[in-house]
Write a protein that binds this DNA or RNA. Sequence first.
DNA 1: ACCTGAACACCGTTCAAGT
DNA 2: ACCTGAACACCGTTCAAGT
Lengths: 230, 230
Amino acid sequence: MVNVGKRSGRPRAGEERLSREAILTAALRIVDDEGIDALTMRRLAATLQVNPMSLYHHLPNKAAVLAGLAELVFAGLELPDPGDAVPWDEQLKEAARAYRNGLRQHPNLALQVLSDTSAVSDVVVVTMEPFYRALDRAGLEPRQIFEAANTLIDFIHGFSLGEASVRAETFELAPDLLTRVRALPADKAPTLKRIVGGLGVEGLAYDFDGGFESGLSTLTAGIAATARRR
Amino acid sequence: MVNVGKRSGRPRAGEERLSREAILTAALRIVDDEGIDALTMRRLAATLQVNPMSLYHHLPNKAAVLAGLAELVFAGLELPDPGDAVPWDEQLKEAARAYRNGLRQHPNLALQVLSDTSAVSDVVVVTMEPFYRALDRAGLEPRQIFEAANTLIDFIHGFSLGEASVRAETFELAPDLLTRVRALPADKAPTLKRIVGGLGVEGLAYDFDGGFESGLSTLTAGIAATARRR
DNA sequence: ACCTGAACACCGTTCAAGT
DNA sequence: ACCTGAACACCGTTCAAGT
């Protein structure tokens, strides 16, 4: 057991325990395993068997740790581009599916990631080529491509946020929702009552994959209409 | 100045300082004025000129305060329903615009609100009638109505999250984004480079209202296509 | 029933001191 | 240059005691 335990001072060459990368990796593990609230500087330091203050030599503060995690998640994102072998709408859907799957890898981090503007801005640069390529093939003008890509990304973000939130919950939403819609006064929301009531508990038990595909189809159909109209 | 200051024990009838509602109102003000991080139980108590522990007689813990805030924001949401006087797609867009505007009232709370599953579930019951009515008029089947409404809500959530995040930032995103896209190797993302580069700084300076309308148009066009296909 | 004061077990972070 | 230990100014929350 050499070089282990609480030595003080600078470690000798080749035995550095700490680096920005090592810290972020450990932080990601904590967040994945125990949630975002479990991540504290002291806990993180303990995991790395290091003094809490040592972290501050590699990252300026806790906010930087969180920003680093968002960056890490997006950096790990790779959208496979099926290219021109498939129709443009299928290319677009494939890229969207891959993006959603990337976000799903770390549900406890979804909130942090999606609200980190500079991380989201990063992702545009790193992963948006397949989106732009598909929309270009669809025949949209540059401005329309830009806006359609943003709309699609917004949908995926909203969807992922909902998916991550529901996964974190324990209780079942569908029966509760149904009960409350049925309890509404008859004249208050007639259409809502008829539609939601008609679907029943099994109809409302949300199928995330199906819901995502449905959204993608609606969006590609809308984009196709835009392309036809140019 | 009677009845002011630090008296101990139960207040006499008519002079209660504290209630769940009063606490949440004060909390909302702090979050609106100074951000979510400024909201602590101790700070909240100080604002109400009360001992921190007093809060716990009205709300079980801080999580309940945050959940109460989400509830409060959604409760204040009222979607005007233009009804059948306008085409279904305009009715749908009006409801969506009102929903977005409701979320914009408290940008510092957006993250909390959008990730609170039970609050989001609430909103369905309270405000979704115009959405369902418009989609019904469009000629969709019940299942399609349910999914189209969810897709639209997801888009609004993703959009609002982006809007709230960017508002919190100080720096300008567009120039930074442009610089980095232009710095990409020529063969890496040719379409992205061509489209984003072509738009230029002024083309990328994001117009939230325009982006939202563009998304709504794409979605309603896609929904119209679904309706035609049934 | 409602409010309080002291206390507990935590936080993030600064600063001076080690090697 | 990097790590440490003590300290500061905070947190949320429990618990027993007041009226």
